[in-house]
Design a protein around this nucleic acid. Structure first.
Lengths: 217, 217
DNA sequence: CCTACCGATCGGTAGG
DNA sequence: CCTACCGATCGGTAGG
């Protein structure tokens, strides 16, 4: 061990492996604490480097953060598109989406805040576009398919636009921050069931004509 | 003007007025940028003080932040309890809640993150309790009343627990960060309509038996 | 990829 | 409530 500084990852790092180590450490730290709360020295320490060494791989802290976010969005896109591509019914697709998306651990809200507040205009634009393509688009296509197949109401028949449904679903998934300690698995499951229940059936009792604007036919 | 530093508020500040000026400036800044992104010097500048002067009114930055959050929660509680107390039907109450709660400008998500990450255990406990009492409780009581009056389905009849409904509503209101520029008034209105529509009626088309677990009777 | 170091800024204190 | 100032830490650079 001629390193002396940190636990060098697996073994002797090859060519581009150091870069990926940095991104991995940065992802873990940024996603848990947010952009501002994580220092470049913490990231460097976590992969056994000195802080200035980071700048051989990334122009600055923001550039590293953008790479982290882009990779994260790409992972989400892969998962969501896979679910959207499956031909199962909408209810089942929704359950799979809820099971797949990180409820609180990835702290989606944190991510959106940082995109809005910590990046320059150019990076913000790129990330907003990536967010639309990776998260909104697959979810929108699930709802659109549901409408097309007649399983969901079209906007003209008392439904809502598919893209709006996608945003509302994402909001429900974010929850309201991690309230208290980590949610248990059964809590997550109950939450998932509740979301599906609301999105599909709403909460109105049968026969209750509470909303005069509602004319599904 | 013997001040020389900043626009001193209205006129010569009386006794406890300086303190309130500090809280007001802090609220504006904290709510827009988050705890870490706002420096004590910015707050002081905003009310025509030097930075050390803040410490004559608050023990430290965190204590000031806690006061800001507590006041904010109290404002929300007043509004929500007023809506919950009105005897109108659930649909109308939901619309009023959505109109009342700050959609993106107050950045609820930001607030929750800071509560979880920037405060010590004691303050975090106090704020979580205040959040439950000020936001969750009034919303829960609206949903509970709806169930009691037969307007909403009880959890045993395909509904969900009132507290869960409250959390889901808050999630939908947060949206997914401020996506892009400020939402326009008409966008807000469309969003409000969509939320009410989903919460009451869901999205399932009539006759579509997509969810085998659904037995409202 | 390291050592050494920069200017800037942070939250907070001393002392009046 | 101000001036003066503290130690700590930040992101980033010089130079090898």
């Amino acid at each position: 061990m001629a390193r002396g500084r940190g636990k060098s990852p697996p073994a002797a790092a090859g060519a581009g492996e150091t870069r990926q180590d940095i991104v991995s450490a940065a992802r873990r730290l940024f996603m848990e604490h947010g952009f501002r709360a994580v220092s470049t020295r913490q990231i460097a320490d976590d992969c056994g480097l000195t802080q200035p060494a980071l700048y051989r791989h990334f122009a600055d802290k923001r550039a590293l953060y953008e790479v982290v976010l882009m990779e994260e969005l790409d992972t989400m896109r892969a998962g969501l598109e896979r679910i959207a591509a499956r031909g199962t019914n909408v209810a089942e697709q929704l359950r799979q989406v809820i099971r797949f998306l990180p409820g609180a651990e990835h702290d989606l809200a944190q991510m959106f805040h940082d995109i809005s507040h910590e990046l320059d205009d150019a990076a913000r634009g790129r990330l907003q576009m990536a967010f639309e393509q990776s998260m909104v688009a697959p979810l929108t296509s699930i709802f659109a398919a549901g409408i097309r197949q007649g399983a969901l109401r079209a906007p003209e028949r008392g439904g809502i636009p598919p893209a709006t449904a996608a945003y509302l679903l994402l909001g429900m998934l974010q929850g309201t921050g991690r309230r208290g300690a980590r949610e248990s698995t059964t809590q997550k499951e109950q939450r998932a069931t509740a979301i599906v229940q609301v999105m599909l059936h709403g909460l109105l009792a049968p026969g209750a004509a509470d909303d005069p604007a509602y004319h599904p036919m």
